[in-house]
């Protein structure tokens, strides 16, 4: 098992290397003069040269590459052009809200989507199923920020049940923390939920037609046990896969959700960096987000082995 995990871990290295090379070459081979663009519209030649020197773009390409690679291997993501603070520090300062938002969304989405997917499969072609499928189609079309404003309008402005925006760190108390995450999680989770619910339904339908479900029914087991143990455990692999795929959706959505709800996390940091054209920060964030995604996929890969005894390492 450990050997398997280590092997999978090594398999992620090429992917991360490609990501790293991409951000490196993007800056070096961008059309136009990135230093001029980063420095801004009315920058003087000196200012542009200063940016160029700061980014190390004035040195030979090979040298740039080696400097950059050694930095990266040491875990050094460079320095922000504007605040001069190390990118790693900027990122770690903003990590908590984003992790909290992502995990709570993941939790809300999975906790809601799997039961409704199972329900839809159980009541297939009945009205419950049609409602669920209709919701899924809508969920795929609903932009995160539009839903976010609809939720804010009703729950925060009209009914004043929840805060309009902002984030309360967990050390400020559990309820304010949870309260500040409810609407963002719902807005961010809707498409994800639709994706998981639809996959759960499809996978369950496939499983429910299998012989072993007939066996389980012939044993007079409770419906709950047949659906949630006998069927769902067999249906789990595609569901887990799509939960992993959806993490990408979630990460893209985080950037927008944090902007709408004014949550000071990595998404907000990204937007600020883009608006100020702070490329080192953007580059660091890409590496972190891509790393998170690769890591999630790794966890998913490993979880297959626990769910299905037929899978061998």
């Amino acid at each position: 098992m450990t050997a398997y995990i280590v092997r999978r871990l090594f398999a992620t290295l090429p992917v991360m290397a490609v990501v790293a090379l991409f951000v490196f070459f993007l800056l070096r081979f961008a059309p136009g003069d990135p230093a001029a663009i980063i420095a801004g519209e009315d920058a003087t030649t000196e200012a542009i040269e200063a940016v160029r020197a700061k980014l190390g773009l004035d040195r030979p390409m090979v040298e740039q590459f080696f400097v950059w690679v050694t930095q990266l291997l040491r875990g050094d993501l460079g320095v922000s052009i504007f605040s001069n603070l190390p990118v790693t520090r900027l990122i770690s300062q903003r990590l908590e809200p984003t992790v909290a938002l992502t995990l709570s969304t993941l939790f809300v989405a999975v906790a809601m989507a799997i039961p409704i997917g199972v329900l839809a499969a159980w009541k297939v072609r009945k009205w419950v199923d049609r409602v669920v499928m209709g919701f899924a189609v809508l969920g795929f079309a609903m932009p995160v920020f539009v839903l976010a404003y609809i939720l804010i309008y009703f729950f925060a402005v009209q009914w004043q049940m929840l805060p309009v925006q902002g984030y309360q760190p967990i050390k400020e108390g559990l309820w304010p923390f949870v309260e500040s995450l409810i609407l963002p999680s719902l807005a961010l989770g809707i498409t994800y939920m639709a994706l998981i619910a639809r996959t759960t339904r499809a996978s369950m339908l496939e499983v429910l037609s299998q012989d072993y479900i007939r066996t389980a029914n012939s044993k007079g087991l409770a419906t709950g046990r047949v659906l949630l143990l006998h069927a769902l455990k067999n249906a789990a692999v595609p569901i887990i896969t799509v939960i992993g795929i959806g993490i990408a959706l979630l990460i893209s959505g985080v950037v927008i959700t944090e902007t709408v709800f004014n949550i000071p996390g990595l998404g907000r940091l990204t937007v600020d960096a883009v608006l100020k054209r702070d490329y080192p920060v953007v580059q660091g964030l890409i590496l972190v987000f891509a790393g998170a995604k690769v890591l999630v996929n790794l966890v998913i890969d490993i979880s297959y082995a626990f769910l299905d005894p037929r899978i061998r390492y």
């Binding site: 299998q210 012989d211 072993y212 007939r214 066996t215 389980a216 029914n217 012939s218 044993k219 007079g220 087991l221 409770a222 143990l229 006998h230 455990k233 067999n234 769910l307 299905d308 005894p309 037929r310």
Partner: peptide, 25 residues
């Protein structure tokens, strides 16, 4: 009531032993 009967007082075995048992339990 039917469920309490199935597998208890009347039980059944099927043709396909390869697929009639749950693979993950």
């Amino acid at each position: 009531e039917m469920k309490r009967l199935r597998g208890h007082r009347i039980s059944m075995i099927f043709q396909e032993p390869m697929t009639s048992l749950n693979p993950v339990l």
